[in-house]
Structures are given as structure tokens and as C-alpha cells.
Nucleic acid binder design. Structure first.
Length: 683
DNA sequence: ACGTTAATAT
DNA sequence: TATATTAACG
């Protein structure tokens, strides 16, 4: 294609499974003096586009919507994702909804069959319009465009557009009189790949910056030190810019502390530690031999994996994106209201690692290397609750590094577990984590089931509404007190608990609160909950433990929570980018397979027990022998599920699940709780 | 050419 | 909104 004759010879890829339509389209396009290539299969089309990506072989794609294998929308989506080629959708369907779908998916035009020649004459404007060098791209919003394009084929406008284009962009033109064509191709068919900065890459970056010294760290130098050839100086510069802003925010106190929840999966690599001193470990492991692992496996103590767990659970892709899905039950009984909530005078915190009898500390804050090269002032933010420094490479007048930190009160660290729980529950209702404010985690009625009742053929969840407020309070308070203390007993959180949370002093399982709900324990009253014992299992120990969490009978009360399936998958596959601290994490890498802690909803429907068919539908009449269900579970997994008591050794809250899970990993992986590499929630 | 910052895009 | 890319400037 010669630039001077544009749009003559513009290369168009026409996609339609109907050969006749395609032939007609081809003729029409050729009549417009375009250079036409035809394909009948969208996948083939995509392949061609990918092949040609670098050469910039096509200027525009016209695709039919209805096609076997891959429909036009999917093709459109993939093209939009990978390259920067304008796509025109073509369909016999002229319903506004379909048209809008096309436009919303990024089609630059939508043509209804049969297409008239005049319509095709103007399509070249999309190529011009699409050019990034075109200044108009920045001047006009996309909305009016869409409306305008719905009725395409208006020659006058296009003439004007073309004229404008040539008169503008003076600087570029001057530089590129001859190279104009090449540049145009590049911009129209080749999207610059966006560089991701997953945790390990970022840490590599930080490491490099530290090595060089923050004040002398400039992009080029960092690039050298990092020695990652896929990165450009510009990428580094960009990241450096972001990093500086981040550090500045921290030093100004605008970011209180790095939290996987606050920062999401892309957090700056923050790790969490379960113990604070060797003495504590030694002492506590007398009572809890399982904790010896923590002594001998410092890689766990500062393992990235646990924080990954938290961080990744925050990923919308892990949870939030899945709405209309079959549900399984999550039943909270009254004891579970003690999620991570310290109870007065027991010295026990509801975390999985229970160091009873010893002075305790729990994972609740950033450990070393969470920050690098941070300014002195920032450390003051952390003067509470951390004995050492959380900062690597901190400047001279800062306290020395400590690999462990101390939390003054054994009661100071409930927040993550409780928040995590709340978010899991919320997210499994289809609400992405980030959309769940901590104080509305278990909102009683605001956004109840997203699923339609028809789709919900599994037990529902029942949470005593009166406890929702308590959850909320705790979440809020827990977060606020994350780093509180040490302080005197009068104003410590511990001291504040009784008045704040009067319920907390109650014992597990005892009726409490305003209603008698807790004392009435029946299986779900709803017809939707006819199969209360029915918990899908997958022959997987983790899954069994999850059922321990989820399979309890709840007090019958006034509202239901329906929760999407929560499947802890096996280690067959994982998609992951390490987020953990590479220094600590990789040192223990053995190359062994990692557990894949994965939310895999797709497995659910086919794996249902007894009475579910392959698509997950339960029988219409809906009575299932509970004993049979139990037996089946017992037979296949040797684990009873679906009963109202504690199951499978996991006593039923998430913390204990985590702890058990860790222990399981210990034995599986030869004493190394978390091996290097990574794991992830999917899909 | 490089570093930086601001604007812009995703 | 967050984060990446690109333009622009010293």
C-alpha cells in the first residue's frame, strides 16, 4: 500500500463462515480498491493477524458475528486485546442490543447485512481514525463516535477528516517524510506490549535500586543491574516514577502501611510472619509440636506464600468475576463468630497458629523488605507494633534491621482473618473484593444473593443477622488496631474489647444475642436448601477441610447468604507470578510442584455428590437420603462431610484451615511448608 | 541521549 | 482508580 494513494490498496481481512456472503463482501471491497484477504474461520483469521502482527499486514478487519468455533465478538475481543486493528462487525442481526454489544466490545463500526457498497467506501476512515498519531484521538471522546458510526458511509465527513489529518501533526511529518508509511503501520497494527510488574519483578527492581542507592538510581543504571532484557529503559523509568510516588506517599503518611488488601495482588511484596522470637517458638512448640516446623523452616516465617494467599484472594479474577454459579453452603455457627476475635482472658487469638501459653505474636504486619530505601520519617509510622525495622536499606539513623517483629499484644492481630473471611463471603456472592468495604462485609440485606433462586440448588448460608454488625465492627476495629500498641492497659485494644464487643466474652456455642436463633439448630428451612449435607468434594484434603469450614449447620434465622463455590484445587496447574519476597522464597525452592490454591468454579457442577447430574442439576423432587450422602462422602474420601459437627479435624474456621493446610504442606513437602515458585487463584 | 515530569492511554 | 506508555522539556 502506498501512502500517497491511501486508501487504495488498504489491506482488509474479511472474515465470514458463509462463503457466499464472504464472496460478495470480497467483491464489494475489491470494488472499493481495497486489498482483500478472506478467511472463513475466525481462528484462522486470528492466526493470520498474529503472524502478521509485526509486519503489519492488515489495516482493517471486517468480521461476521455469527460463526462456529469462535464468534465475531470473541474475535473482536482478542484482536482488541492483542493488537490495534480496527474491526468492523457484520451481521444480519440489526437489534440495537447486538449492535451495541459490538460497539461496546470495541468494534469501530457495525454493519447490518446486506451491506451496501457505499458503506464500504468509507471504512478506510477507521484506519485513519485509529492511528495513534492522529491528534483527534485525544481530542474527542469515544461516545459520540459510536453513535455516529452506527450510520456509517457518510462520505463528506470523511473527506474533512482526511484533510484535517494532513494539515496537522507537523512535527512528526517533518521527521518522517519517507518513513510515514512504516510508522503508520507500526501504530495501527502493533500495540506496544504493556509491561507487568508482578511481585518478583518489582522486588528485583527494588533490589537493584537498593544496590545502587536510591539517590543514584536512574533508569539506565537500574536496567543494567536488573539485567532483564525484556524491559526497556522507559519501562524502568515509568516504574521508577511510580515507585517514587509510592515512597513519597508512605513518607507523607498517606499510605498507612502496605496491606495486601489495600494494595491488592500487585502490592509491593509484603510478607507476614507468624512468630516473633525463637523463645516463643521454642516455648510454644512444647505444647504444639507442629509449630516446630516454624522453627526449622524460617522460609515459612517470612514466606511469601502466605501473603500470596491473602493477596491473591484479593484478586477480582479469583473471586469477583464469577456470579451466576452454582452455590454451596457456607454455614456459620455461633462459634464462628469468633473468627479471629480475641476473647478476653483466654490469651488466645483465633488464628490458626495458636501459641497458647507462650507470649505470642501473629502475622499482622509487614516484615522486612516490605519497603526499601524509605525515608527516615516514614519509619515513625511504624513505631508501634514492630520491634525491628520493616525497611530494608534504611538510612543510617534508622533502627537496625530485624527479620522478625513483635506485636506487643497477642490480641492485636485479628483483622486479616476476619476481614479475609468477610471478603471471601462477600466475594463469593459475586462482589469483587475491592468493592467490599470493610465495614460492609456482611451487610445483612443490602446485596443479598446475586444468583437467581433457580440457579441455587444447593444449601444456602445462614448467618444470624444480629451478628453482622458485630462482624463489621470487628473488621473495622481490627484493621484500625493492626499496629496499635504497645500501650498501657487502659487504652489498649485488649482493654477496649469488652466494652466494644460485649459478645466476645461469651463462650462458644452458648446462646447469645437478642434472639433465640442460636439455640434452634435445624437444617436449612428453605426448599433451596433441601440438601444441607451436600458438599461437593474432590478427593482432595484441602477441599475436605474447606468443607469443614463451610459445612456447619447454622441457626435458622431470617436471612440467607448464598455463596459461590470455593474450590481448592490440586496442584495440576497454576498460573502465577511470584509475589513473595524472592530473597526468602526462592532460597527454599526445590522445584517441586506447588499447591495450587485455586478457585475453580468450573469443576463444581460435575463433581456434585449424589443426585446432581453432570450439569449440576439436582433432581426435581429433591429428597435425598442424608445418610446416603454421608456414606458416599465417607467412601470416597474417608471424611464425613455435611454434618453439623466439626469435620475432618479442621475445627471449622478459616484460620485453622490455613494452619492445617500449612501443616499438610509441611509433611507433603518434606518439612518445607512453602516451596519457592508460586501459586495462584484462578482462573 | 538521558532523566524527569506531565499528559495520555488502558 | 491504578498503572503503563508517550510526549515534551531541560
Amino acid at each position: 500500500m502506498e501512502a500517497s494513494k491511501f486508501p487504495v490498496g488498504m489491506r482488509v481481512l474479511a472474515v465470514d463462515d458463509d462463503r457466499v456472503s464472504l464472496k460478495i463482501l470480497e467483491k464489494q471491497l475489491k470494488h472499493c480498491n481495497y486489498n482483500v484477504t478472506t478467511v472463513t474461520d475466525a481462528k484462522r483469521a486470528l492466526d493470520m493477524l498474529r503472524e502478521m502482527k509485526n509486519g503489519g499486514q492488515f489495516d482493517l478487519v471486517i468480521s461476521d458475528v455469527v460463526m462456529p468455533n469462535m464468534d465475531g465478538f470473541k474475535l473482536l475481543e482478542l484482536i482488541g486485546l492483542e493488537m490495534d486493528i480496527p474491526v468492523i462487525m457484520l451481521s444480519a442481526n440489526d437489534e440495537t442490543e447486538t449492535v451495541m454489544k459490538g460497539i461496546n466490545h470495541g468494534a469501530c463500526d457495525y454493519m447490518v447485512k446486506p451491506v451496501r457498497l457505499e458503506q464500504l467506501r468509507g471504512i478506510w476512515t477507521h484506519v485513519v481514525r485509529n492511528s495513534k498519531t492522529d491528534p483527534r484521538n485525544r481530542m474527542s471522546g469515544g461516545n459520540d463516535d459510536a453513535g455516529q458510526k452506527l450510520q456509517s458511509g457518510d462520505g463528506d465527513n470523511h473527506e474533512k477528516d482526511g484533510a484535517k489529518q494532513t494539515s496537522k501533526s507537523s512535527k512528526k511529518k517533518k521527521k518522517n517524510v519517507d518513513g510515514a508509511e512504516k510508522e503508520k503501520e507500526n501504530t495501527s497494527t502493533q500495540k506496544k506490549q504493556r509491561v507487568q510488574w508482578p511481585g518478583d519483578l518489582h522486588r528485583k527492581f527494588v533490589k537493584a535500586v537498593n544496590q545502587i542507592g536510591m539517590d543514584r538510581a536512574v533508569p539506565k543504571k537500574i536496567l543494567e543491574v536488573m539485567n532483564v532484557d525484556s524491559l526497556t529503559r522507559e519501562n524502568i523509568a515509568s516504574h521508577l516514577q511510580k515507585y517514587r510516588i509510592y515512597l513519597r506517599k508512605v513518607s507523607e503518611g498517606k499510605i498507612k502501611y502496605p496491606s495486601p488488601f489495600a494494595d491488592g495482588p500487585k502490592a509491593w511484596g509484603c510478607d507476614w510472619m507468624p512468630v516473633n522470637s525463637d523463645t516463643d517458638v521454642a516455648e510454644s512448640s512444647k505444647h504444639h509440636p507442629e509449630l516446630a516446623t516454624y522453627q526449622s523452616a524460617p522460609s515459612f516465617v517470612a514466606s511469601p506464600s502466605l501473603s500470596n494467599l491473602f493477596a491473591r484472594m484479593n484478586s477480582p479474577s479469583a473471586f469477583g468475576a464469577h456470579t451466576f454459579l452454582p452455590t454451596q453452603s457456607v454455614q456459620l455457627m455461633s462459634s464462628q463468630r469468633n473468627f479471629g476475635i480475641p476473647r478476653e482472658n483466654t490469651g488466645q487469638v483465633g488464628h490458626g497458629v495458636n501459641l497458647s501459653g507462650a507470649s505470642q505474636s501473629f502475622p499482622s504486619g509487614p516484615c522486612r523488605s516490605s519497603f526499601a530505601n524509605i525515608s527516615n520519617g516514614a519509619s515513625k509510622l511504624f513505631s508501634h507494633g514492630i520491634s525491628g525495622s520493616s525497611f530494608a536499606n534504611i538510612s543510617s539513623d534508622s533502627p537496625p534491621l530485624a527479620s522478625r517483629m513483635r506485636f506487643p499484644s497477642p490480641h492485636s492481630c485479628s483483622s486479616y482473618a476476619s476481614i479475609l473471611r468477610g471478603k471471601i463471603l462477600g466475594a463469593s456472592r459475586g462482589i469483587p473484593f475491592e468493592d467490599i468495604a470493610d465495614d460492609e462485609m456482611l451487610a445483612p440485606s443490602g446485596h443479598l444473593p446475586l444468583q437467581s433462586p433457580e440457579l441455587v440448588n444447593l444449601p444456602s448460608v445462614q448467618i444470624q443477622s444480629s451478628s453482622a454488625g458485630l462482624f463489621n465492627q470487628i473488621a473495622r476495629e481490627g484493621e484500625a488496631h493492626q499496629f496499635s500498641g504497645p500501650s498501657n492497659s487502659n487504652n489498649s485494644w485488649k482493654a477496649a474489647v469488652p466494652s466494644r464487643f460485649p459478645d466476645l466474652s461469651h463462650s462458644i456455642g452458648i446462646s447469645e444475642g437478642p434472639s433465640q436463633g442460636n439455640t434452634i439448630k435445624i437444617n436449612q428451612p428453605s426448599r433451596l436448601a433441601a440438601f444441607s449435607g451436600q458438599i461437593p468434594t474432590f478427593g482432595n484434603v484441602y477441599q475436605n477441610q474447606i468443607t469443614g469450614i463451610t459445612g456447619k449447620t447454622a441457626p435458622a434465622l431470617s436471612f440467607n447468604e448464598q455463596v459461590a463455590p470455593f474450590n481448592i484445587g490440586s496442584n495440576t496447574h497454576y498460573t502465577a507470578m511470584p509475589i513473595g519476597n524472592s530473597d526468602l522464597g526462592s532460597s527454599s525452592s526445590t522445584g517441586a510442584a506447588l499447591p495450587n490454591f485455586q478457585i475453580d468454579n468450573s469443576v463444581m457442577p460435575t463433581q456434585m455428590l449424589n443426585g446432581g447430574d453432570a450439569s449440576g442439576n439436582l433432581p426435581e423432587d429433591g429428597t435425598i437420603n442424608q445418610q446416603a450422602v454421608d456414606d458416599e462422602v465417607i467412601n470416597s474420601n474417608e471424611v464425613p462431610v455435611g454434618k453439623s459437627e466439626v469435620q475432618n479435624g479442621a475445627s471449622g474456621d478459616l484460620d485453622e484451615f490455613f494452619a492445617d493446610w500449612v501443616n499438610e504442606q509441611d509433611s507433603v513437602n518434606n518439612g518445607d511448608a512453602f516451596i519457592g515458585g508460586d501459586w495462584d487463584f484462578g482462573p
